[in-house]
């Protein structure tokens, strides 16, 4: 199969990933039916994961692995969880992608991986204090288009 990332892009990502300190684990959820972009999204992520030994990935199916999907609050395919990995421990920071991360979203994917690897949200103290005090879950859905 032809690669989705050309050598130039791969090199750019390699450079962007070079300072990564901590490990990142990606959970990919596909679906066998009615998922136009699942195969491409999975291939794209596999190519990204290959670039750095700091990144690992497990592949799931939204239907066959419904329990895991529910556990991680994933209800769309392709669904992507970008989590932290320390030893065998996966820590979920709540970072998700729904849909294929192409175009501008591809940059966001790479930045999210680097952000999770840094283990720092870069949020202000004000925001952190507010979020720490939350008693009810908050879901932020950021609608984006590839262009």
């Amino acid at each position: 199969m032809a690669t989705l990332l050309n050598a130039d892009v791969r090199k750019q990502i390699e450079d962007a990933f070079a300072p990564m300190k901590e490990y990142v684990h990606i959970m990919f959820f596909g679906q066998k039916e009615n998922c136009e972009y699942c195969a491409d999204a999975q291939q794209l992520l596999e190519e990204v994961v290959e670039i750095s030994e700091k990144i690992s990935m497990t592949i799931y199916d939204l239907d066959d692995d419904a329990d895991i999907a529910k556990n991680y609050n994933v209800d769309k395919a392709p669904g992507i969880v970008i989590a932290a990995k320390d030893g065998d421990v996966i820590s979920d920071f709540g970072v998700r992608f729904a849909g294929i991360p192409s175009g501008h979203e591809f940059t966001s994917l790479i930045q999210d991986i680097i952000l999770v690897s840094g283990r720092d949200s870069h949020l202000s103290d004000d925001t952190r204090d507010f979020l720490k005090a939350l008693t009810e879950p908050v879901l932020l859905q950021v609608f984006v288009t590839p262009t």
Partner: peptide, 24 residues
């Protein structure tokens, strides 16, 4: 407690319409 999900507006049009997404 906080989940942040990037949603492809073109791929999930039903959800986009539900939330009246007109600009991204």
């Amino acid at each position: 407690m906080v989940q942040a999900e990037m949603v492809g507006a073109m791929e999930f049009q039903e959800l986009s319409m539900k939330h009246n997404v007109s600009g991204v």
